[in-house]
Nucleic acid binder design. Structure first.
Lengths: 219, 219
DNA sequence: TGTACATCAGTGAACGCGCGTTCACTGATGTAC
DNA sequence: TGTACATCAGTGAACGCGCGTTCACTGATGTAC
């Protein structure tokens, strides 16, 4: 039943956007009354939190699955697969993407300690691949700026699928993430008119540029 | 009076976010009644449109001013100044940034033909600098993907401060824009915990990488 | 097998609030003779 | 200079709607004796 409520919520978010979500509309579509929902989510914000966690989990699942579909020793292939899966997930679920990375919902305060695990997990695939590349000497790290001492502790909080990743890998991962996030978020907002439906080609090109910049040429 | 209404609206957007904007709250803060606003904006959406245009204009102003504060022959300096001004504007007015580049407002349909001029102008500073670099042979363009024929026309619609820019310059500008947008939008959403308040350093580093990748080494 | 009881998901009414928008109006201002 | 009039920004009441949340309740289900 919890699942049915969330599913209905997702359908409405997909259609009208996250900021328009309402318990009464959900209840109406499900053929029940609004107070019935309170048996499953004590407050509206708890439903929103559950949706955010589910969205991060779904993104994380697709990231990890994409990574693991490529042999463990083909790190470059894993990087590419993870990157393509990121855009794929976003264009498939643009409103979920907006919910977790877009404008905050008015009046909703994200409970960081609840959301953090699934959020961190959603990036763990990328981070683990970058760390793998670093360990095998394929990461171009010479010119990276040092990580300031005061941020080291927050770096260490980022779980990376069990194993730890070095600060330098996390820096590179954040930069790559910001690049793909930039393209994807502009694309799903319809803000790149010249490319329009050809977002895929532009995206693949950016991934080549990322590779040129962060990956050592194979000898 | 129109200006006073918009100013009050901006104050509320800054505090509660764009999706929470309401005519009645604006009127309340101004000490007038809600219907009075209808003398200046026939519908709520017209106010929103005016705000979006003002935001783009403000961003465009700051971009062009930053560019023009650097001598015309120092193209690299102009690129850097424009890039830094972009982040500066976003961190100064995060809610304006969300309004124009974030999650669409529920029920609001952007009137593209009205908004487009100010939107295009907001990118014209960057585009003009890139085009200048291309014309002086400083743009690394060898590996850029060709612009598909069907998008040439939409490229030509992008005004670039009077002069035209080549498709290749526009492609590079879009890529650079996406990179800075990615970092900035993650930063103002508080999504880069490891860097936190040090967004500036990370941003400057990305700008160095952009330069490495798109600008020819000076002989 | 039959009855008494507890459980508990869901109901319907209500509270208090907010919203955009319309409408006939007031009342100050400024203009025309 | 004095009066009649037009203009028009702003008012207050109302319309119809939606929202999250509370509360006492119903009525089906399943369990215990």
């Amino acid at each position: 039943m919890q699942a049915a409520i969330k599913e209905t919520a997702w359908r409405q978010i997909a259609e009208f956007g996250a900021p328009a979500l309402s318990l009464r509309t959900i209840a109406r579509e499900m053929g029940i009354t609004a107070p019935a929902i309170y048996n499953y989510f004590p407050r509206r914000d708890d439903l929103v939190t559950a949706l955010i966690i589910d969205a991060f989990t779904s993104l994380g699942d697709s990231q990890l699955a994409a990574r693991d579909a490529v042999p463990e020793d083909d790190l470059l292939g894993r990087l590419l697969a993870t990157g393509l899966a990121y855009r794929q997930w976003a264009v498939t679920y643009p409103q979920r993407y907006h919910l977790i990375f877009g404008t905050p919902l008015p009046g909703y305060e994200t409970p960081e300690e609840q959301v953090h695990p699934s959020g961190a997990r959603s990036l763990s695939a990328l981070i683990s691949v970058i760390e793998g590349l670093r360990l095998s000497g394929q990461l171009r790290v010479a010119d990276l700026p040092p990580v300031k001492a005061e941020y080291r502790s927050s770096f260490e909080e980022w779980p990376t699928d069990g194993s730890q990743a070095s600060p330098v890998s996390l820096s590179v991962a954040v930069l790559i993430w910001a690049r793909v996030h930039g393209l994807v978020s502009l694309e799903i907002s319809g803000k790149i008119p010249p490319f329009g439906p050809d977002g895929d080609a532009l995206y693949r090109f950016e991934m080549e540029l990322i590779q040129q910049q962060f990956i050592e040429d194979q000898p």
